[in-house]
Nucleic acid binder design. Structure first.
Lengths: 232, 232
DNA sequence: AGGCTTGTTTGCGCCAGGGCAAATAGGATG
DNA sequence: CATCCTATTTGCCCTGGCGCAAACAAGCCT
């Protein structure tokens, strides 16, 4: 198996403050693995055997409730760490990571984590930042779900998606991976039907442009105003 | 200022795996501060000057939305770390911590954090566990808010409160700090009125016992069944 | 004790948004 | 190009829970 070139991961938050030799050392313990579209990188409740950095592609991370409903936790973009269950003291993954397009990730065995952080204390500090920012995202979401109604939540979610995974295109900013209305519903705590209705309305106002598994934000600013609600 | 005895903090998760001398060393840099009931330990958006361990009392941590609504993030119980904004890479506190009873906390200056983790790498690892478990709590809450209706959310919240801050009493398990219906509403994303109605109904069924700023869970098991919904 | 503040209960009307059902439309597949 | 499968749209009805309003307690302060 060919080793991964340092330039691919240099500059990622996880490796901030580490010396090039240290990065090389860490990379030697990792494998690069392909996950074809439609496959799962790991599954909820499965033993947390590995942790990852996404090099290419996009993942949908979701939780399954006992009665079969899905809730999308987040989408993973290239450069992000994921599957750090072990580092935060879990034996199993709390959610499932699903490749929505062909994806490639660097994979470390979870068992190596204690040794890696012992050797490179910066890793723990950097991971703490990552987990901390996710905690803030989660709290933001709790606040939104507690205080905003559906239309605004969808607006906020779309703006976030556009920012995190937006690709500039003539018509506006396109979310650059296949995403369904159902996905948006599972991110906002709404139903597929309501999301469809809202997006249809926005489309007829020229705010967004829809399509099959495709969303283009045409007027981020107007959407923002809607999300923040300067009128109340 | 008198120094804090090691026995007070020995065994707390934050100090897991640290040698007694190391703990003493850390304690020397901390102050013990009293926060009378009704005062704020820190406020949202204020510069994150310190981080804390609660020694005694109870805190309500909440976020304030732009339009003035409060959302309770969590209650802090003795032994827990809080205010670690700086450690997760924030300059300001993302929420306000309010003493609901007279409280005492150990206080470290945030500025000391980088040096402390450099000297005691275990700190970062332990904090990572703490933040990680909060992330899971937050995700649990998101899932509940997305998929459950109000009555069940309240049931889950009460069970969690009983477990985290319950005091055994003749009638059942009493939440051992003053908590209002409004607080429960702000934890569940419901209104004060709905919470009051639900608790009244439960009280007439003998599931809980109410009172001013007081909740006693009489039948945890029945409440659990209600929360999980064996019937659907 | 009396009044005041703060928390709780309850009734009533209303509506955002979910549930259900059915039609439609893109893509993919053979 | 015909078929199938999945995603999307839309209509209609219904209800959980919110908003508003008012009446009650229970402490607390003077």
């Amino acid at each position: 198996m060919a080793s991964v070139d340092r330039s691919v991961v240099e500059g990622l938050p996880l490796f901030a403050g580490l010396a090039p030799e240290q990065i090389d050392q860490l990379l030697q313990e990792a494998q690069s693995v392909r996950y074809p579209k439609g496959t799962n990188v790991f599954q909820q409740d499965e033993e947390a055997h590995s942790f990852f950095i996404l090099l290419h592609g996009h993942l949908r991370v979701f939780k399954l409730t006992p009665d079969g409903q899905q809730v999308v936790v987040r989408f993973v973009a290239p450069g992000e760490v994921f599957g750090v269950a072990m580092a935060i003291g879990r034996k199993t993954y709390p959610a499932t990571a699903h490749a929505v397009v062909d994806s490639i990730a660097l994979v470390w065995p979870s068992a190596a984590w204690p040794r890696l952080v012992a050797t490179h204390p910066g890793l723990a500090v950097n991971t703490l930042q990552t987990v901390g920012s996710r905690l803030q995202d989660a709290h933001t979401r709790v606040v939104e779900m507690s205080t905003e109604q559906v239309e605004r939540r969808i607006a906020h979610t779309l703006l976030r998606l556009a920012q995190q995974a937006g690709r500039k295109v003539e018509a506006g900013v396109e979310i650059d991976f296949p995403i369904t209305r159902q996905d948006v519903a599972e991110m906002t705590g709404a139903t597929l039907h309501t999301v469809s209705r809202v997006l249809s309305a926005w489309e007829s106002q020229g705010l967004v442009e829809g399509g099959r598994q495709r969303i283009v934000v045409r007027e981020p600013h107007k959407l923002f105003i809607l999300a923040e609600g300067s009128s109340r």
